[in-house]
């Protein structure tokens, strides 16, 4: 089994004719994801790669194809409205890959998405992949392997690094979710941990956090109080200086809060096995399984 992204995923790609959207739509199709439709205003009626019907609006795409999930590759200035549009069309899972969405826009987007009963993953995230079933986003399918380890992360390539270690050790994954590096995101660690705890196909979870905010500390409390499955964790940014934005908009130590040390201590106290380096993921998981 898996979470969020499953065999039942029927995908609409917003921005399917753009540079990133077309590249990744092809990759997702090659991986076996059911790409039901694409959306680019003004290109309705055309077909992508001669196969996938393109519509002018998400509402049209949903009505005509029964799509149930959206993935967004449009440029940052159009991304907030793309999320509004997907939620308005009744989609219940919206994955926004786009980086650079202003945080004040997100303060308006997030309550709207919740009122519509939808889940947003991202923005500024690599999306999710359930190996052997479907991928929604940009995580390279080739590094993953089907199995029973759930992975949730605020990062992109660091997640690939850790998945790579897992796959090489023959520890396949149920689902890998990148929740995004921005300060305001639709799906947080706890949402994913709760879903993994419920998922019968997940036996253990790897959580990859970083400096900035308190999402990891909240996740630690959740693990301690609500989870039975073993959890292994990593925090990036032990050597990051305070007050500087480390690439991700959300990766910043403000004053003395949000440090890696504080988050690692919260993990330890909650019974999460803490990796000192990415390669530790395999031995730590083996110990806990």
């Amino acid at each position: 089994m898996s979470i969020f992204v499953t065999r039942d995923t029927r995908l609409v790609v917003q921005g399917i004719t753009g540079r990133d959207g077309s590249f990744h739509a092809k990759q997702m199709m090659e991986y076996g994801t059911r790409v039901a439709a694409g959306v680019t205003p003004g290109k309705g009626g055309q077909r992508f790669e001669g196969k996938v019907p393109i519509y002018d609006t998400v509402a049209d795409a949903v009505r005509e194809t029964g799509a149930n999930t959206s993935v967004i590759y449009v440029p940052a200035r159009f991304a907030p409205d793309a999320i509004f549009e997907a939620a308005d069309a009744g989609l219940k899972l919206i994955v926004c890959i786009t980086e650079g969405v202003p945080v004040l826009d997100m303060t308006r987007v997030l309550p709207f998405v919740r009122e519509k009963g939808a889940r947003l993953i991202g923005p500024n995230c690599p999306g999710a992949i359930s190996p052997g079933r479907a991928k929604v986003g940009i995580i390279p399918g080739s590094i993953c392997k089907q199995g029973s380890v759930g992975v949730v992360s605020r990062s992109g390539t660091l997640t690939y690094e850790i998945i790579h270690h897992l796959t090489h050790a023959d520890m396949g994954q149920s689902t890998c979710v990148g929740i995004g590096g921005d300060p305001l995101i639709g799906t947080n660690f706890i949402d994913c941990l709760a879903a993994f705890e419920e998922d019968s196909g997940t036996r253990a979870v790897v959580i990859i956090g970083e400096i900035g905010g308190t999402d990891e500390q909240d996740a630690a409390t959740f693990v301690k109080e609500k989870m039975k499955k073993p959890v292994v964790g990593f925090i990036a940014g032990q050597t990051a200086p305070p007050g500087r934005r480390m690439g991700h908009a959300g990766a910043i130590i403000s004053g003395s809060s949000g440090t890696a040390a504080e988050k690692m201590a919260a993990f330890e106290a909650a019974g999460i096995s803490v990796m000192k380096r990415p390669a530790d993921v395999v031995p730590l998981l083996k110990k806990r399984l």
Binding site: S153, R154, S155, G156, T157, L158, T159, Y160, E161, G181, I208, E210, I211, F234, A236, G237, Q238, T239, A240, M246, G247, H248, A251, A260, R277, P278
Partner: peptide
Amino acid sequence: GAGLAMATMDLVK
């Protein structure tokens, strides 16, 4: 990637 960049710095240390 920002996360991998931080993890690389950490591994240097």
